[in-house]
């Protein structure tokens, strides 16, 4: 990635999802390890960075936290364009927030054409008592669209770091795969056109490289 000036590779990650599912809270917890019940609703988007070390390699994440309201949907491309990863966050106690991420997935697949790692995230597991979306349902859905799946709670700080580690690992795997592909054989790319299949153990398949134009 050429965007960063530091030596460590930079990955761009965008957080998408319905309003008030906890996108900003997840980010706040991750960056600052804080939680705040009453922070401002995000209008437009906000930006944060953090370095982390995965498999002994330091990478930098550029994270865009977007606004949830449907009205801002049209702004999405500004933020997800060029991302290597997208977190699709929903609230496990809110069915419609789960439906909303399906729209995002469809759009991302269309626009980014599998170049980005998708991670479906069920937030607010601390409210498990009022859970509406069963874990199995969500996992199944994630699998069906070739996305990773994770659950977390920003409030209780459950699995927040793991979230970003998971997506980073997957993005790194994908990046190295892509570069191998590029190095290896353009021949192979042109003959084998695989569909994207990303599995949980970060053993990612090659990204489908559609012939462009």
């Amino acid at each position: 990635m050429e965007a960063g000036t530091s030596d460590s590779p930079v990955f761009k990650v965008v957080l998408l999802g319905e309003g008030a599912v906890g996108k900003s809270s997840i980010l706040l917890r991750y960056i600052e390890n804080k939680f705040n019940n009453k922070h401002l609703s995000t209008t437009q988007a906000s930006f944060a960075t953090r370095k982390l070390t995965v498999n002994g390699k330091t990478v930098e994440l550029n994270i865009w936290d977007t606004a949830g309201q449907e009205k801002y949907h049209s702004l999405g491309p500004i933020y997800y364009r060029g991302s290597q990863g997208a977190m699709l966050i929903y609230d496990i106690t809110d069915t419609r927030s789960f439906e909303r991420i399906k729209n995002w997935v469809r759009e991302l697949q269309e626009v980014l054409k599998g170049t980005a790692t998708l991670l479906v995230v069920g937030n607010k597991v601390d409210l498990d008592a009022t859970r509406q979306i069963q874990r199995e349902t969500a996992e199944e859905y994630a699998k069906s669209v070739g996305a990773l799946y994770a659950e977390c709670s920003a409030k209780e700080n459950i699995d927040i770091d793991a979230l970003f580690e998971t997506i980073t690992k997957a993005m790194m795997a994908k990046a190295s795969e892509v570069s191998t592909l590029n190095r290896g054989a353009s021949l192979r790319r042109s003959t084998s056109r695989r569909t994207i299949q990303v599995s949980d153990d970060t053993d990612t398949e090659a990204a489908p490289k559609k012939k462009c134009c």
């Binding site: 980010l27 706040l28 804080k34 922070h39 906000s46 960075t49």
Partner: peptide
């Protein structure tokens, strides 16, 4: 800067 940004984000806990 980063801290400040996040503080803005959360408007301080």
């Amino acid at each position: 800067n980063k801290t400040r940004a996040m503080q803005m984000l959360a408007m301080q806990s």
